[in-house]
Design a protein around this nucleic acid. Sequence first.
DNA 1: ATTATTTTTGTAAGCGCTTACAAAGCGTAC
DNA 2: GTACGCTTTGTAAGCGCTTACAAAAATAAT
Lengths: 338, 338
Amino acid sequence: MSERQRRTLLEDVAREAGVSTASVSRVLNQAPHVSERLKAKVESAVARLGYVPDGSARALASRRIGAIGALVPTLDNPIFGTMADNLERQLKGHDCRLLLATYRYDLDDELQALRTLVQHGVDGIVLIGHEHHDQTYALLQQRQLPFVTSWQTSTTAQGPCIGFDNAAAARQLVQHLLGLGHRRFGIITAPFGQNDRARARLQGFTDTLTAAGCPAPQIEVVDYGIAEGAAACARLLTSDRPPSALLCGNDTLALGALLEAQRRGVRVPDALSITGFDDLPQAAFMTPALTTVSVPAKDIGIQAADALMGWIRHGHRPADITLEAQVKLRQSTGPVPD
Amino acid sequence: MSERQRRTLLEDVAREAGVSTASVSRVLNQAPHVSERLKAKVESAVARLGYVPDGSARALASRRIGAIGALVPTLDNPIFGTMADNLERQLKGHDCRLLLATYRYDLDDELQALRTLVQHGVDGIVLIGHEHHDQTYALLQQRQLPFVTSWQTSTTAQGPCIGFDNAAAARQLVQHLLGLGHRRFGIITAPFGQNDRARARLQGFTDTLTAAGCPAPQIEVVDYGIAEGAAACARLLTSDRPPSALLCGNDTLALGALLEAQRRGVRVPDALSITGFDDLPQAAFMTPALTTVSVPAKDIGIQAADALMGWIRHGHRPADITLEAQVKLRQSTGPVPD
DNA sequence: ATTATTTTTGTAAGCGCTTACAAAGCGTAC
DNA sequence: GTACGCTTTGTAAGCGCTTACAAAAATAAT
């Protein structure tokens, strides 16, 4: 066949349409002050030639790449999958792409990942939580890069924030259990050294317990996973004075705990109450259905996209948004056993 | 403070180091034929100036952007989250970024999403399954873009493929159940019109049943979700001649079915056997633990990254890779009731 | 020492767009 | 009819890199 031919360029479209390259560019970018006639000529030439603009060249010349970056701890946790999914879909509606990077809860890795995203020239950034490397904030600041933080209401307000109050929801769970007469609590939490959401939840738990004058809870710190939750539950149940209520930092740990309790013949909620956090799809379907907190993962994705695009396109820095995290009282919690 | 200053450019580094811009570029890109002395000079200048290269300019000049695109149906299904997570991490090891797009099992959307990824200039593409728009393949072909397909062993081999044999695994599940004496089957599957993996699984189920001379199974086609699985299970259990074994197209549907059966007091596996597909983390932890197929989501992500990077960097088109999908016989399947 | 090779470095021409600025067109008021 | 303002279009200078090609330096061969 014909030898590998040159791709169609904007210049070719201009020639074909009998106009200047600037005009073609204007039509393509929906610039103001373009006559209908010009628009029609260009569009037909584009169609005739099957022209596809080159993103790199456009990015270099315009200094926007049409993509934002998201830094998430991991996609192995479906709650972040849900957020990322909705973020990406909403961005698509704004004609924007998603560059995704994960950092396994390691804030050094996060900084590293941010650097490469910045290098790529992303137009904005979505961050999870407020705790980040100082240099992370410094880089964002220095580049004047629009960014939002998420998943946790702002306390320090380094940037616009789209989140919910983890501590308050945790408090509500404890209050619910206190109301049921519980006094001896166990807590299973993910490592919270680099994770302010986990820390806020834990703080919500312990503060409320302390305020109510309960004995100090036993705290198990374990990695994410059903097996990890189960093991932690086993340790708590076999301790000297086993708790009557188990507060878990997320649903996955709670599911592990629930299954372990059942395996040991400990009846939930009769002998042991268990709470989760996240409201994963399966939480409502367990027997007993899991008392937990429904986190607005979907909304965070959507609102983050809208907020960021508004900032990037129209320059107005978005306001903080506080979303609701609803406590779902279900069957895994009940009155304290006699 | 000082007025908004110009960013440090490669040119500045060259001046600072007293060398040409070409030399700086060579050092930065680890080109061959660079003396240690030059390298040291440039690196120190880079460090002194805190130079960060501009990805867009680099992309335009070099015609590679250092990112690949992945088109996944959805991230709401954690199995794709796992794949994406591992894909991204492995790419990071190759100093490559991930542009992620979802298409909700709509192949027109997929084509549209591919177009924007191509426009952005991605260096390669990861696709799920083999069934795609003709134009999807045409575009890939026309642009000579490295791509791999995944999740399903190749039959038509439009491109290198990293997958496993869905139909064979499905067949094994049925054979296991046939061996337990089952003859009346129900099938719960996701819509398979645009989803060759679901179709392969279904085909594996029905072909094996037909070959064994079983009566035609009742087939429920439902969307992804626990509730959907539960509802489908309810319909099957209340039909004229309820099945003794339920084959589910994925674990989420199977979990729904399992929970619904238990809610109705139908004992699993004594009165009803249930199988899943995917081996989600919770499958092993249900009571009874779910008989299912462990799919190599993690490995697919890793191998897809390696294969694609090998192709992009070194030009050798990767060979097909068939990964193992292991059937996990657990407690949700048992002998047919008398 | 001279020439042929090979390695290292520099020069400068793009990569394919966007956009500041200037020029042209057009309508209205005088 | 001319002058003025507004809208529409064109000209051309970049955007910040990479890399083909040429020149220079270093090394080997004669």
